[in-house]
Nucleic acid binder design. Structure first.
Lengths: 137, 137
DNA sequence: AAAGTAAGTGCAATGGAAGTGCATTTGTTA
DNA sequence: TAACAAATGCACTTCCATTGCACTTACTTT
C-alpha cells in the first residue's frame, strides 16, 4: 500500500498541502464531484487553485473527468492502475435523477460499440440515468 | 406524409412562422446543432425566441437534447415516432474529434446495459468519439 | 368582425461555470 | 543562501444558459 505522497510523486506531481487535502477529499467520496463541491469543502482556498489542481491531476492521469449530462463537469479519482486513455478500461457512470448524484460503476465496463463503416471509434462516454440504490429503497 | 403544420398541431404546438422555419432548419440537418448554429442561420431573430422555441420543441418531444461532451448543449429532431422517454428507442451519437460535428446514428440502438441491484435504469446517454466517415477518407 | 385572453417574440439583463493574466508566495536545487 | 521554477491567490474576462418585462401576434368567444 503506497502513501498518497508516493502516489503523487510517482506521477510527477509535486506534493503540497493543498494537493494532499484535495486528493484525500476525492478519495473518500464514492460519488463524482463538481468544482463547486470542492470549493465548498475548502472555503479558505481559492477557486483557481482548486481548478488548476484538478487540471493537474487530470493531466497526470490520477483524476478523470465525467460528463454526466448535467452540463457541469465532474471529476473522480481514477482507479488504481487506470489509464484513462485506453478505451477498453472505460467504465460507465450512473446518474440518479432523484438525488442528483453521479457514481462510477467501476465494475461495469462499457461493451464494445459498433460504428458504421468509415467511422473510427476512439473513446466512449456512457451515462445511465435513473434511480440509484439509495433512492430506490 | 403529414405536413409540418400537421405534425406541430398534433403535438399541441401552435404554428408560427418562426417555428416552421426552425423546424425546417433542423429537418434538413443531418448533424446535431447548437443554439448558436441556429442563431447564425436566423440572424434577424432574437436568441431568446430561438432558445424558447427549442425548449418548446423539447417539451413536446419533437426535439431531443444531446450532450456530446463538448460542454455545449446540442439539439436534433427526434425520429418519426420517437418518444424520447422510452429507453429502447434511444440511439447513440458520434462526435468527430476532427471536424467537431456530432451525428445521430439513428440505426445504432444502444445495447441493454446491466446495472447493479437496486439501481433502476431509466435512460442512457451514449456518445462515441473518434473520426467520422468524412474525415477518415 | 370586435374584444378579450393567452401565447409568442424581442430586448435587456443576470447568473454560473470555465478559463486567463499577473503579482505573490512557496518550494527546489545549485 | 541565491536563483529559479512551480504553485497559489486575486481580479477579470468570456461564453452559454436563463429570466423578467414589455410588446406583438394568434386564437377564442360573443
Amino acid at each position: 500500500m503506497q502513501t498518497i505522497e508516493q502516489l503523487l510523486e510517482s506521477k510527477d506531481i509535486r506534493i503540497t498541502a493543498m494537493r494532499l487535502l484535495i486528493y484525500k477529499f476525492l478519495a473518500e467520496k464514492e460519488i463524482v464531484v463538481t468544482l463547486s463541491d470542492i470549493e465548498n469543502a475548502f472555503e479558505k482556498a481559492d477557486r483557481t487553485t482548486l481548478y488548476r489542481t484538478i487540471k493537474t491531476f487530470e493531466e497526470k492521469d490520477i483524476v478523470h473527468q465525467i460528463d454526466d449530462g448535467t452540463g457541469i463537469t465532474k471529476y473522480a479519482l481514477c482507479e488504481q492502475g487506470c489509464s484513462c486513455d485506453i478505451k477498453t478500461d472505460l467504465h460507465l457512470h450512473f446518474h440518479c435523477n432523484n438525488c442528483n448524484e453521479t457514481i462510477c460503476l467501476t465494475d461495469h465496463k462499457i461493451p464494445q460499440i459498433k460504428v458504421p463503416d468509415g467511422f473510427v471509434s476512439e473513446n466512449v462516454n456512457l451515462v445511465v440515468k435513473g434511480i440509484c440504490d439509495k433512492c430506490s429503497r
